[in-house]
Deep mutational scan, measured.
Amino acid sequence: KLLSSIEQACDICRLKKLKCSKEKPKCAKCLKNNWECRYSPKTKRSPLTRAHLTEVESRLERLE
């Protein structure tokens, strides 16, 4: 599967780190437990900047 097509777990399953069936409108866990089942939009991760990478590398060197 391509990364862009990976389905996201519902908010509660993601928060509780449960295996989500990803069914809509309610996944199996939410249906069974009568929880409100919501699927928040995916958040875009910002790409690493060179400055951040350099900072992490220098912190790693100090720890070694």
Rank of each mutant, 00 (worst) to 15 (best):
residue 20 C to E: 07
residue 38 R to D: 08
residue 58 S to K: 13
residue 30 C to Q: 00
residue 6 I to Q: 13
residue 53 L to C: 10
residue 44 K to M: 12
residue 4 S to Q: 11
residue 6 I to T: 12
residue 45 R to K: 06
residue 42 K to I: 08
residue 3 L to S: 10
residue 1 K to A: 15
residue 51 A to Q: 12
residue 26 K to S: 13
residue 9 A to H: 06
residue 33 N to A: 10
residue 62 R to D: 00
residue 13 C to P: 03
residue 41 P to E: 07
residue 37 C to M: 07
residue 28 A to E: 14
residue 22 K to V: 08
residue 45 R to F: 01
residue 16 K to R: 04
residue 23 E to M: 11
residue 42 K to S: 08
residue 62 R to Q: 11
residue 47 P to K: 07
residue 20 C to I: 06
residue 36 E to T: 13
residue 28 A to F: 09
residue 52 H to G: 01
residue 22 K to L: 05
residue 18 L to H: 11
residue 24 K to Y: 15
residue 56 V to G: 00
residue 13 C to G: 01
residue 9 A to V: 09
residue 15 L to W: 11
residue 3 L to K: 04
residue 25 P to Q: 08
residue 7 E to Y: 06
residue 3 L to Y: 13
residue 30 C to L: 00
residue 24 K to N: 15
residue 40 S to H: 01
residue 64 E to F: 01
residue 61 E to P: 01
residue 16 K to H: 00
residue 28 A to N: 10
residue 6 I to M: 13
residue 58 S to N: 13
residue 10 C to P: 00
residue 60 L to K: 10
residue 2 L to H: 14
residue 26 K to Y: 13
residue 46 S to G: 01
residue 61 E to A: 14
residue 57 E to V: 07
residue 40 S to T: 10
residue 45 R to M: 04
residue 40 S to G: 08
residue 25 P to N: 04
residue 21 S to V: 01
residue 52 H to R: 08
residue 40 S to V: 07
residue 36 E to Y: 06
residue 7 E to S: 10
residue 46 S to E: 00
residue 49 T to K: 00
residue 42 K to L: 10
residue 62 R to L: 12
residue 22 K to A: 01
residue 43 T to Y: 01
residue 17 K to N: 06
residue 18 L to Y: 08
residue 35 W to N: 11
residue 4 S to D: 13
residue 14 R to E: 01
residue 56 V to W: 00
residue 11 D to A: 02
residue 4 S to N: 10
residue 49 T to D: 03
residue 62 R to F: 12
residue 59 R to D: 00
residue 13 C to M: 06
residue 27 C to D: 08
residue 46 S to Q: 02
residue 50 R to M: 07
residue 45 R to T: 05
residue 19 K to P: 07
residue 31 L to S: 12
residue 41 P to R: 02
residue 51 A to I: 10
residue 64 E to K: 07
residue 61 E to F: 13
residue 15 L to G: 12
residue 48 L to T: 06
residue 44 K to T: 10
residue 31 L to R: 15
residue 1 K to W: 01
residue 37 C to F: 06
residue 38 R to G: 14
residue 44 K to I: 15
residue 60 L to E: 00
residue 12 I to D: 10
residue 53 L to Y: 03
residue 10 C to D: 00
residue 19 K to W: 04
residue 3 L to I: 12
residue 42 K to V: 05
residue 15 L to D: 10
residue 61 E to T: 14
residue 57 E to M: 00
residue 43 T to F: 08
residue 52 H to P: 03
residue 57 E to Q: 04
residue 49 T to P: 00
residue 34 N to V: 11
residue 34 N to W: 03
residue 14 R to D: 00
residue 45 R to E: 08
residue 49 T to Q: 08
residue 39 Y to V: 08
residue 49 T to F: 04
residue 34 N to T: 14
residue 16 K to Y: 03
residue 50 R to V: 06
residue 37 C to W: 01
residue 38 R to E: 15
residue 9 A to G: 11
residue 39 Y to L: 06
residue 56 V to F: 02
residue 36 E to P: 14
residue 39 Y to R: 05
residue 18 L to P: 10
residue 64 E to Q: 14
residue 64 E to R: 09
residue 43 T to E: 15
residue 39 Y to F: 08
residue 41 P to Y: 05
residue 52 H to K: 05
residue 49 T to G: 02
residue 24 K to H: 13
residue 16 K to D: 00
residue 55 E to M: 14
residue 16 K to W: 04
residue 14 R to A: 07
residue 64 E to H: 10
residue 27 C to E: 00
residue 35 W to L: 15
residue 54 T to M: 09
residue 15 L to R: 08
residue 58 S to M: 14
residue 25 P to L: 00
residue 48 L to C: 05
residue 1 K to L: 13
residue 5 S to M: 11
residue 55 E to D: 14
residue 55 E to C: 13
residue 23 E to A: 12
residue 20 C to L: 06
residue 7 E to W: 12
residue 29 K to N: 04
residue 55 E to G: 09
residue 41 P to I: 03
residue 51 A to F: 11
residue 29 K to M: 07
residue 25 P to S: 10
residue 55 E to P: 02
residue 39 Y to S: 06
residue 9 A to C: 03
residue 20 C to N: 02
residue 53 L to Q: 03
residue 63 L to P: 00
residue 6 I to Y: 12
residue 15 L to C: 14
residue 28 A to G: 11
residue 18 L to S: 11
residue 46 S to M: 07
residue 15 L to S: 12
residue 11 D to E: 02
residue 43 T to N: 07
residue 61 E to R: 12
residue 3 L to F: 14
residue 51 A to P: 01
residue 57 E to G: 02
residue 57 E to N: 00
residue 44 K to Q: 15
residue 29 K to H: 04
residue 59 R to A: 10
residue 47 P to H: 03
residue 5 S to E: 10
residue 7 E to Q: 10
residue 24 K to D: 09
residue 58 S to T: 12
residue 61 E to N: 10
residue 23 E to Y: 03
residue 12 I to P: 11
residue 28 A to H: 12
residue 57 E to H: 07
residue 33 N to L: 10
residue 33 N to D: 06
residue 44 K to F: 08
residue 59 R to C: 03
residue 8 Q to C: 04
residue 2 L to G: 15
residue 60 L to G: 05
residue 24 K to T: 15
residue 51 A to C: 09
residue 64 E to L: 06
residue 47 P to S: 04
residue 12 I to G: 11
residue 44 K to S: 05
residue 19 K to Y: 02
residue 37 C to A: 08
residue 4 S to L: 13
residue 22 K to N: 06
residue 37 C to R: 01
residue 32 K to R: 15
residue 23 E to W: 06
residue 25 P to D: 04
residue 16 K to E: 00
residue 48 L to M: 08
residue 50 R to S: 09
residue 8 Q to W: 11
residue 44 K to D: 06
residue 4 S to P: 12
residue 63 L to Y: 03
residue 62 R to H: 07
residue 32 K to D: 05
residue 48 L to H: 03
residue 15 L to F: 11
residue 13 C to N: 04
residue 6 I to H: 11
residue 40 S to D: 02
residue 8 Q to F: 15
residue 61 E to I: 10
residue 18 L to V: 01
